[in-house]
Structure formats: C-alpha cells, structure tokens
C-alpha cells in the first residue's frame, strides 16, 4: 500500500531470510573483513578479465546464499539483480546457467536497494514466495568503463571514491517460515535529483541531495522521527557526501548525526588504505548490508535500520556531452521481528 508521497508499506512483512557477501582483496583488508562470507585474494578471481571476474562474484554470492539458507536453486522464484556495467553484463552472464527468472536492474549504486524493494513488493503481493536481490561491482571493470585506464598514472583527488569489488545477495521470502529473521516494513522509492554537479570525482556531493530528499520524504510519509531508527545507513556517499547530507537535514531540523553511517566509509579504513572519500559501487551497499548490517540485526544489536542507497545515473557519454549527474536514492526500512 502506498502512503504519503512515495512510500510503500509492506503489510505482509516479507522476511530477509538470509544474506551472503563476497568481496575482493582491498575489502578483505578493511575493518569489516570478519563479516564477509567469502574473501577473494585475486581481483581477477581466476578469470581473464575484470568483467568475467565480476560475473563470478555475483555467481559466488548467489551460490553462497543458497548454501547458507539452505535452499535448492529451483525453490527460488526470481532474481532481481544488477550491476554498473553497460547492459548489466556482469549480472546477465552470472545468471546465465542458473535457470532462474531474472529482472535485470540498473540503478547505478542504488541497485541493491532497488532490488530489495522490488523483491519485497513481489513477495508482499503474493506473486512470488522466494526471491533473491543481488548486486555487484568491480573496481577494475567500473574504472575502465567510467574513468581512465588502470595503469594510467593519474592522481586521485581527495573527494574521489573507490569502487568496491564484490557482490552481496539477500533472500527475501514470504513470512510463513518458522525462522525468525529481519523483515522489510517500508520502502521509499526515490526521484531523480540533479543539483547540477558535473564533477565525477565528487559523486558524494552529486548524490547527497538525492539521499536528503528520500530520507526527508520517508520520515514525512511514515510520520516518524529520525531517532526512530537505530541506524540510518547510506550506500556510498563517502565522507564528503555524508557531511553534506547531515548538514542539509540539519537545516530542516532533522538530526541524524548520531545514528547515521555510510557503507562507503565503513568498508575501508580511509586513512591507512588511502581510500580518499571512501567506497562506492553497487557492491558497496550490497556487501556492507549483507555482511555487517544484517549481522547487527540478526544479533539484535540494533532493532531497525533505514538503508538508503544512492546512485549516480550518468554515463561517460552523457558527461562528454556536458550533462550534469542525475542522482537517485531508494530507502528501505528493515526491522527485527518481535
């Protein structure tokens, strides 16, 4: 049911029965290392190209999820998945041999939450019983698509972010299972917000207004206060974007400085790993949620979370044509079942 302007309420409370995460070498060295299911030392994952490696990451995340659930492949009704590459090739090739229906999604770095919202909607509506929401990204493949060749000796600016290598997957099921798991209660679907920022080296600043807009709308629609949530976690605003988000909300009288965090800032040690503004990419939010946040919910360290993933929907072509960066943010509220 839709309430307010943009928010969906899931009355049937779809469950996130389990999650799985798999990350590359840089993320394995980061502070969240112990929360990830699989850590791959080889950024090529034994493949010849970064694109093939990214596909393998998605595939491995889905396999890990099915093993952890545990669930047979044919029990999964549908996969909602996406990645950063043109035509979502990482996803397409990863699902190729799985024999499971697929909705391929593109929401840039917001893809994981977009997938979660859609999976929850289909489950809530009763069309599907078990869906997988997953997203992946890879530093190598993203860098070559969006920026310069990897071996090009150029400097990274302080506001620049590092694309997370890895994939995260969540199993969304109908709420008759006996296992107690976190449930999806609300989702706020974002609008495109574009404040005219053109600097790709400062995506945080381009995406922060989108996150601001979605969070504000979510709180208005649900008539909740910001402190209702134990944790409001954004996808990949990075250091700069997070500061802007907090300040923008502050100006509206909403204080999230105590319960806000950002996946991009959690996944790396910004100083010792020389990560500048933090992590980004579909996998940033996907792996941090599937690994760390889900663990917090499961172990009851927090009782609810608002996961807000932001995406910058530009391409090298649009940038070449002088366009600014259109951004979007989707939010999903997840609570532990009482």
């Amino acid at each position: 049911m839709k309430i307010g302007e943009q928010t969906l309420v899931f009355e049937k409370k779809p469950k996130i029965l389990n999650t799985a995460s798999i990350v590359g070498p840089k993320e394995s060295e980061g502070p969240l290392s112990i929360f990830f299911d699989h850590k791959i030392e080889d950024e090529l994952f034994g493949e010849e190209s970064f694109e093939k490696a990214e596909s393998k990451f998605t595939q491995a995340a889905i396999d890990a999820l099915l093993t952890k659930a545990p669930l047979d492949k044919y029990m999964v009704d549908c996969i909602f998945a996406g990645d950063l590459l043109n035509q979502c090739i990482a996803t397409g090739y990863a699902i190729r041999d799985s024999n499971i229906p697929l909705f391929g999604l593109y929401g840039a770095c917001s893809t994981f939450v977009e997938a979660l919202i859609l999976a929850s909607s289909f489950v809530n509506a009763g069309y599907y019983k078990r869906c997988i929401a997953t997203a992946s990204s890879h530093f190598g493949s993203a860098e070559r698509q969006f920026r310069l060749p990897l071996q090009q000796g150029s400097q990274r600016t302080p506001t620049q972010q590092w694309t997370v290598t890895g994939a995260g997957a969540a199993l969304v099921t109908h709420n008759n299972d006996r296992y107690k798991s976190p449930v999806v209660t609300h989702a706020t679907v974002g609008k495109i917000v574009d404040m005219g920022i053109k600097d790709v080296a400062n995506m945080g600043a381009a995406m922060a207004p989108a996150a601001f807009d979605t969070i504000l709308t979510h709180l208005e629609d649900t008539k909740r206060k910001a402190d209702y949530y134990d944790l409001i976690i954004t996808g990949d605003l990075g250091k700069m974007g997070s500061e802007i988000l907090i300040e923008l909300l502050q100006a509206k009288g909403i204080n999230i400085s105590t319960n806000h965090n950002d996946c991009g800032m959690l996944i790396y040690d910004l100083v010792s790993q020389d990560m500048h503004a933090g992590g980004s990419g579909c996998a940033c939010c996907a792996t941090v949620f599937s690994g760390y946040v889900y663990d917090l919910l499961k172990s009851k360290k927090i009782k609810n979370v608002l996961l807000v993933a932001t995406g910058a929907l530009m391409s090298p072509v649009s940038l070449g044509q002088g366009e600014s960066i259109p951004s979007i943010a989707h939010a999903v509220a997840i609570e532990t079942e009482v």
Partner: peptide
C-alpha cells in the same frame, strides 16, 4: 529536477565548492 531542497543549483554548487577539501 524537483527536490525538497530549498537551494538553486548555483547555490548548491557554491556550497559544495566551499566544503570541498
């Protein structure tokens, strides 16, 4: 684009420029 932010694009880019390290 529509947004709840009461700022013009110019104001926002000024604001970002100032924050930018």
């Amino acid at each position: 684009s529509y947004t709840k932010l009461n700022m013009t694009n110019e104001e926002y880019s000024e604001y970002v420029k100032e924050k930018e390290k």
